[in-house]
Computed example of a mutant assay.
Amino acid sequence: MRLCVCFVLLSIILCASADSALARGGRFVWDALGGAKDMYRAYRDMREANYKGADKYFHARGNYDAAKRGPGGAWAARVLSDAREKWQSDVSGRGAEDTRADQEANRWGRNGGDPNRYRPAGLPSKY
Results as ranks from 00 to 15, higher is better:
1 M>Y: 06
2 R>P: 04
2 R>H: 06
5 V>K: 14
5 V>Y: 13
7 F>S: 12
8 V>L: 15
9 L>K: 11
9 L>W: 11
10 L>Y: 14
10 L>V: 14
10 L>Q: 15
12 I>T: 10
12 I>E: 07
13 I>Q: 15
13 I>K: 15
13 I>H: 13
14 L>N: 11
14 L>E: 09
14 L>K: 13
15 C>G: 15
15 C>P: 02
15 C>K: 12
16 A>W: 13
16 A>H: 15
16 A>S: 15
17 S>V: 11
17 S>G: 03
17 S>I: 11
19 D>T: 13
19 D>C: 10
19 D>L: 14
21 A>R: 09
22 L>T: 07
22 L>I: 05
24 R>P: 02
24 R>D: 10
26 G>T: 04
26 G>L: 10
27 R>F: 02
29 V>G: 10
29 V>D: 08
31 D>C: 06
33 L>F: 12
35 G>Q: 00
40 Y>I: 05
40 Y>P: 04
40 Y>W: 04
41 R>M: 11
42 A>Y: 01
42 A>Q: 00
43 Y>C: 10
45 D>C: 12
45 D>M: 08
45 D>E: 06
47 R>T: 05
49 A>Y: 01
50 N>K: 15
52 K>Q: 07
54 A>R: 01
55 D>Y: 10
55 D>S: 09
55 D>H: 07
57 Y>H: 04
57 Y>T: 03
57 Y>V: 04
59 H>K: 07
61 R>V: 00
61 R>D: 01
62 G>A: 07
62 G>R: 00
63 N>Y: 01
64 Y>W: 13
64 Y>I: 01
65 D>Y: 00
66 A>Y: 00
68 K>S: 05
69 R>V: 02
70 G>R: 10
71 P>T: 06
75 W>Y: 13
75 W>M: 11
77 A>H: 00
81 S>V: 00
81 S>R: 00
82 D>T: 00
82 D>G: 01
82 D>L: 03
83 A>G: 07
84 R>D: 12
85 E>S: 03
85 E>H: 02
90 D>T: 13
90 D>V: 14
91 V>A: 07
91 V>F: 08
92 S>F: 10
93 G>W: 08
94 R>N: 05
96 A>V: 02
97 E>K: 09
97 E>W: 06
98 D>I: 01
99 T>D: 07
101 A>F: 08
102 D>A: 07
103 Q>L: 15
103 Q>A: 05
104 E>H: 08
105 A>K: 05
105 A>Q: 01
105 A>I: 06
106 N>G: 01
107 R>S: 12
107 R>F: 06
108 W>V: 14
108 W>L: 14
109 G>T: 12
110 R>W: 02
112 G>I: 08
112 G>K: 14
113 G>F: 13
113 G>C: 10
114 D>L: 13
114 D>F: 13
117 R>C: 03
117 R>T: 14
118 Y>Q: 06
119 R>L: 09
120 P>M: 11
122 G>C: 05
122 G>A: 05
123 L>G: 02
124 P>D: 10
126 K>S: 04
126 K>M: 09
127 Y>C: 01
127 Y>F: 13
127 Y>N: 00
